[in-house]
């Protein structure tokens, strides 16, 4: 979380909005636009629908601002609203897709067993192809794993916050995150390895 967000007195801003200075709401939500959109996009896969869901979530947050309780972070509250919005849309489109997952079931994920793995340089993200590979791999995770992965890795929520937001146990968060990570490794490591040209030759004098 950037320090400028921590330093904002969001409680005072919320009071101002509730007291009638409604334009303060624009300022209040500005740091969270990306987070809320990302959460919607990670469930819905469609940019236009994710944008619409994000807008709806912010409007709901505005309309129900007095229900916000300051024991949770405002950003966490926003995330849970957009999560509900996106899950609702997902259920209407594909009933059954958000069914629960058995976290206690045996069956670990077998990672891709490569050797001579080279670090994939972050400059490779300049290429659309690499970003597409990563987005596709994320979108192919089961929904229950994807939610945990996005909250923990992209939104940088801790285990406890993730568990509360999703209404699952901390043990489930850890198990789903572990499986999600290995599923991504299994899917992406071979793809990235072949997509990114080897930049350093083993014998540069050849």
């Amino acid at each position: 979380m950037p320090p400028q967000i921590e330093a904002r007195d969001e409680t005072a801003m919320i009071e101002r909005v509730l007291g009638g200075q409604t334009e303060t709401f624009h300022e209040l939500i500005r740091p969270y636009e990306r987070s809320v959109y990302l959460m919607a996009l990670s469930l819905l896969h469609n940019e236009a629908e994710a944008e619409d869901a994000a807008q709806e979530a912010f409007i709901k947050a505005y309309r129900h601002l007095s229900k916000f309780r300051s024991e949770s972070r405002f950003s966490t509250w926003l995330i849970s609203i957009v999560l509900n919005e996106a899950r609702g849309r997902l259920r209407r489109k594909q009933p059954g897709l958000t069914d629960s997952i058995d976290d206690t079931a045996e069956g670990s994920v077998t990672p891709a067993q490569l050797t001579d793995w080279r670090e994939i340089p972050s400059e490779s993200l300049e290429r659309q192809e690499i970003r597409t590979l990563i987005r596709r791999a994320l979108s192919e995770l089961p929904v229950a794993y994807r939610e945990v992965f996005v909250l923990r890795e992209l939104e940088e929520r801790n285990v406890q916050e993730t568990a509360e937001t999703l209404g699952i146990t901390s043990a489930s968060v850890k198990m789903r995150l572990h499986r999600a990570r290995l599923m991504l490794q299994k899917q992406l490591a071979p793809q990235l390895k072949s997509a990114v040209p080897v930049s350093r030759r083993r014998f540069p004098w050849f």
Binding site: L114, W117, I120, L125, E153, R181, L184, Q185, A189
Partner: peptide, 11 residues
């Protein structure tokens, strides 16, 4: 290493 790097890239 690959898992760690993939996490860095996805984030």
């Amino acid at each position: 290493d690959s898992t760690r790097n993939i996490l860095i890239l996805t984030a």
